[in-house]
């Protein structure tokens, strides 16, 4: 057996020449235009860009929620194009975690049940120690029996984050997770994501248009018109703002 390449060891996900077209012929819109990017294991990466830059499309394609027109996406060393719906579903369930902007929780389930949802769908129960760790980290120990309707927006997003972590996923994808939150709740959620990266070594890919949110990441990738236009390591809020000005966003 040949040893795995170093790329595969350190890369959690990568896109190779990812292209996504909406519509057909002359009226086709290029949402992604040959994007190649790698996401290192253990890193917290933010994807930024103006509206229509293709950042959400890139995230959805990386996460197996959407399919590319051409190119390839790998989760670790697994190419995902051509996977059946069932295989993609199992991939999402067992290897990925999600936090969406809104509507993250099943309204009939309690916070605890929502957190356990991916495991229960797989017919497993949560490891009690890990469950306690995650719940403690998001500060929800006293709210576990509440239904989503009884929780604030910030609490709901933290439940969603806890659910995303409960399976110890290879990558946690977050799509504008703070977009619908007030600034204090948003800051709390970002603090939690940061801790997840630092303390649990969790790989995180987050789409955001908020420079303050992106500033908590290790790396910021800028997209415009479906192409990567900038890629910075720990740029800080000021660096991000400068880059955004350059993009005219």
């Amino acid at each position: 057996m040949s040893p795995p390449s170093t790329t595969l060891l350190t890369t959690a996900a990568r896109a190779v020449n990812a292209t996504k077209l909406y519509g057909q012929g002359d009226s086709a819109v290029r949402a992604l235009d040959g994007v190649s990017v790698e996401f290192a294991r253990g890193a917290f990466t933010a994807i930024m860009g103006p509206s229509g830059s293709g950042k959400s499309t890139l995230l959805h394609c990386l996460a197996g929620l959407d399919t590319l027109t051409s190119g390839e996406v790998y989760i670790a060393d697994t190419p995902i194009s051509g996977m059946s719906d069932n295989d993609l579903t199992l991939l999402r369930r067992d290897r990925l975690g999600f936090v969406f902007q809104t509507y993250n929780l099943v309204p009939t389930l309690t916070a605890a049940e929502n957190i356990e949802l991916p495991l229960r769908l797989a017919g497993r129960r949560a490891d009690p120690a890990w469950f306690e760790t995650v719940v403690g980290a998001v500060g929800l120990a006293r709210r576990l029996r509440h239904t989503p309707a009884e929780l604030s927006g910030g609490q709901q997003q933290r439940v969603a984050a806890a659910r995303a972590l409960i399976t110890r996923p290879e990558i946690l994808f977050a799509d504008e997770p703070t977009g619908a939150l007030d600034s204090r709740s948003g800051a709390e959620l970002l603090a939690f994501l940061r801790r997840a990266a630092d303390e649990f070594g969790q790989t995180i890919v987050m789409v955001t248009h908020d420079p303050l949110a992106a500033a908590r990441a290790d790396r910021v990738v800028f997209l415009a018109d479906g192409r990567i236009v900038d890629d910075m390591i720990r740029p800080g809020a000021d660096g991000i703002l400068d880059a955004m000005k350059k993009l005219g966003g």
Binding site: N86, T89, L90, R92, R93, Y103, L105, L121, A122
Partner: peptide, 16 residues
């Protein structure tokens, strides 16, 4: 619809 979509996103199979 949205709830079903969410369930599918976090790993509910079509069979389920």
């Amino acid at each position: 619809t949205r709830e079903l979509g969410l369930l599918r996103a976090v790993g509910m199979t079509r069979r389920q």
